[in-house]
Nucleic acid binder design. Structure first.
Length: 507
DNA sequence: CGCATACGCGCC
DNA sequence: AAACGGCGCGTTTGCG
C-alpha cells in the first residue's frame, strides 16, 4: 500500500512519467480531514502537534505514528468505507481530471477582454464626471464617501459595514439606484470589472502550453465533504440564466450576455463535445429522504415541480393556482430551509415583511412536519455529541453548538442543519465519479470519455462525438443509480461544442 | 515591503 | 450590526 501525503501530486507525476501507482493507497492528510474536516492545514507538522502532542521530526517513525493513529480513529468513527471506497479511489479520478484540464479558446477570451476593458474605461470616465472627482471606484471606502458625503445621496435605511462606513454592496446600490444617475454606472462598472479581474484576465494567464486550464481540486477544502477548486476556481465561473421553462424568451439578447461569452470560451477538443450532467434538486431530494417527509417524498416520487408543490402547500391553493410569484417565494423557502434561514433573512431576500416571513415559515413547517422534526434531532445531536454526521458517517465537529454566545450557537445550528444534507449530496456525486471512472476504464473508453470538471452537483465531460449517446446514457445511469435514496435521483444532461451553447438532450 | 483583514461577489 | 449553508479570489487598507 502506498501511504503518504499529497498522493494526488504523486499520482499525477507518476502518470506523466507513464509509471503505475499501486491500487491500494492511503493519503494521511485526507484521513485526518475525515476525522476533522475543519483543520487549517493537513500537514504532518500540524497534525502531529495536534493529534499526537509532539513535534514532527520527519522520521519514518513520525510518519508511522500519524498513520497508525489515523487508522485507529477511522475505525473508531466508522469512516473506513468512506475513506477506502470513496475518498481514496476519488484521488486518482481527481488527478486525471486535473491533468486533462479544459480547453480554452484564447482568442475568444482576448476579444471578450478587449470589450470589457473598453466598457470599463468608458464607465470610469462617466462615473468621474457624474461624481465630480476622480477616485478609486474599487475602494468601498472611497466610493461610500463619494456617494453619501460628496453627492449626499440619501442613505436612510441603508445598512453599515462592521467598520462603520455605509455599505456599497449590490443590494445597497440597487436600493439607491433611483436617487442618483451615477449608481447604475457603478453597478455596470462592478459587473465588468469583476468579470475582467476575476475571470477573463487570470484564466488567460493560466492557459497551459496544451491550450487548456488545469484547476486544482482540494479534497480537504470544505467542512461538509464537498470539493473545492482553485487556481483557477472553475466552480464559480459566471453562469448565464436561461429563461424559465415553458416561458417565451424574456431574457436579454443572448449575444450581450457576458457570462455567456465567457462560458463559450471553454470548448471541447475537435472531434469531441462537452457534456454536462447535473443532479436535479439533489439537496432537496436528500432532505426529503433523510427527513422522510411524506409530502416532499410524494412530490419527488411523482416527479412534480418541487417549488410549485411547496407553493401550493404554503399558500393553500391547488397546484394549478400557483403563480410565478408564489413559486418564487416557495423556492426561497425551500433553499432557506436547507440553510437554516430565519425570518429576518427570509424577509430580506423575499421582500416580504418580517411578519409575513414568520407566517410563511410557520406554515412551511406545519406542512412539512418531518423536516422540522429532523432538524431538531440534528440540532440536539450537535449539542449532545459535539458533532453532526451524515448518513455515511461523515463528521463535522460542532463545539460552538453549546456556546454561551447566542449568535455563535445559532450559527452553529445552521451549519449543523446543513451539513448532513450538503454532505450526503457530496458523497453521492463522489461515488458517481469513482464508478464512472471505473466503467470508463473497464470499457477502454479513456480516450473517448474524459471527466474534466466537477461543480458540486454537476459533472462536465469531454466526449468523442461518435459515442455520445452511449456515453451520456452510461454516465447518467451511473449518477442516478449509484446511491439509493427514498426518492428517485434525477440527472439532467446537456451537450454542446462549448460550455456556453449547450442543449438539453433526452436519453 | 509583505501580510492580514475588510469588503465585495462569482458559483452550487 | 447581522440577518441563510458551503467555497475561492479580487482589490484596498492598515499594520508591523
Amino acid at each position: 500500500m502506498l501511504i503518504g501525503f499529497d498522493l494526488k501530486e504523486l499520482i499525477k507525476k507518476a502518470e506523466k512519467e507513464g509509471k503505475k501507482v499501486p491500487r491500494e493507497i492511503f493519503d494521511v492528510g485526507i484521513a485526518y480531514w475525515l476525522l476533522n474536516p475543519a483543520e487549517e492545514e493537513y500537514t504532518p507538522e500540524n497534525l502531529t502537534r495536534k493529534y499526537l502532542g509532539k513535534e514532527f521530526d520527519g522520521s519514518n517513525t513520525a510518519f508511522d505514528d500519524l498513520y497508525n493513529f489515523a487508522v485507529k480513529k477511522l475505525g473508531e468513527y466508522k469512516l473506513e468505507k468512506l475513506f477506502y471506497e470513496v475518498e481514496m479511489p476519488l484521488l486518482g479520478v481527481l488527478a486525471d481530471m486535473e491533468l486533462a484540464g479544459i480547453k480554452v479558446d484564447a482568442k475568444l477570451l482576448k476579444a471578450l477582454d478587449k470589450d470589457l476593458e473598453k466598457n470599463i474605461s468608458d464607465l470610469v470616465k462617466i462615473i468621474y464626471q457624474e461624481s465630480g472627482e476622480t477616485f478609486n471606484i474599487n475602494s468601498p471606502k472611497q466610493l461610500s464617501h463619494v456617494l453619501f458625503e460628496k453627492l449626499k445621496i440619501d442613505s436612510s435605511g441603508i445598512r453599515k459595514t462592521k467598520s462603520g462606513s455605509i455599505s456599497t454592496d449590490v443590494e445597497t446600490l440597487l436600493d439607491i439606484k433611483d436617487r442618483h444617475p451615477v449608481v447604475q454606472y457603478i453597478l455596470n462598472y462592478r459587473e465588468f470589472f469583476k468579470l475582467h479581474s476575476t475571470y477573463v484576465l487570470p484564466i488567460q494567464e493560466l492557459i497551459g502550453k496544451d491550450g487548456r486550464v488545469h484547476t486544482t481540486y482540494i479534497q480537504t477544502g470544505t467542512a461538509t465533504g464537498r470539493l473545492s477548486s482553485q487556481n483557477p476556481n472553475l466552480q464559480n465561473i459566471p453562469a448565464f440564466t436561461e429563461s424559465p421553462a415553458g416561458k417565451p424568451e424574456i431574457s436579454k439578447p443572448i449575444g450581450e450576455d457576458w457570462a455567456f461569452r465567457l462560458r463559450k470560451a471553454f470548448v471541447a477538443e475537435p472531434g469531441y463535445k462537452l457534456a454536462a450532467f447535473d443532479y436535479s434538486q439533489i439537496e432537496l431530494r436528500v432532505l426529503a429522504s433523510l427527513s422522510g417527509d411524506p409530502k416532499m417524498m410524494e412530490a419527488f416520487n411523482n416527479n412534480l415541480d418541487i417549488h410549485k408543490m411547496t407553493a401550493a402547500n404554503v399558500f393553500n391553493v391547488p397546484l394549478e393556482k400557483v403563480t410565478p410569484e408564489m413559486r418564487k417565494i416557495a423556492k426561497t423557502l425551500n433553499f432557506g430551509v436547507i440553510y437554516g434561514m430565519g425570518a429576518l433573512a427570509f424577509a430580506e431576500t423575499s421582500g416580504l415583511s418580517v411578519e409575513q416571513a414568520k407566517k410563511f415559515i410557520e406554515e412551511y413547517f406545519s406542512d412539512f412536519k418531518n423536516i422540522k422534526e429532523w432538524q431538531e434531532e440534528i440540532k440536539a445531536q450537535a449539542r449532545d455529541l459535539g458533532y453532526v454526521s451524515n448518513i455515511n458517517g461523515r463528521r463535522r465537529w460542532m463545539p460552538a453548538a453549546v456556546s454561551t454566545s447566542r449568535q455563535e450557537a445559532a450559527g452553529s445550528e445552521r451549519a449543523a442543519i446543513n451539513m448532513p444534507v450538503q454532505g450526503l449530496a457530496a458523497d453521492i456525486i463522489k461515488m458517481a465519479m469513482v464508478k464512472i471512472a471505473e466503467e470508463i476504464d473497464k470499457k477502454n473508453l479513456t480516450d473517448k470519455i474524459r471527466p474534466i470538471l466537477t461543480i458540486h452537483d454537476e459533472l462536465l465531460f469531454e466526449i468523442k462525438g461518435d459515442i455520445m449517446k452511449e456515453a451520456t446514457q452510461l454516465i447518467s445511469g451511473i449518477m442516478e443509480g449509484v446511491y439509493e435514496l427514498e426518492v428517485p435521483i434525477k440527472v439532467n444532461v446537456k451537450t454542446g461544442k462549448n460550455w456556453g451553447e449547450m442543449t438539453t438532450i433526452v436519453n
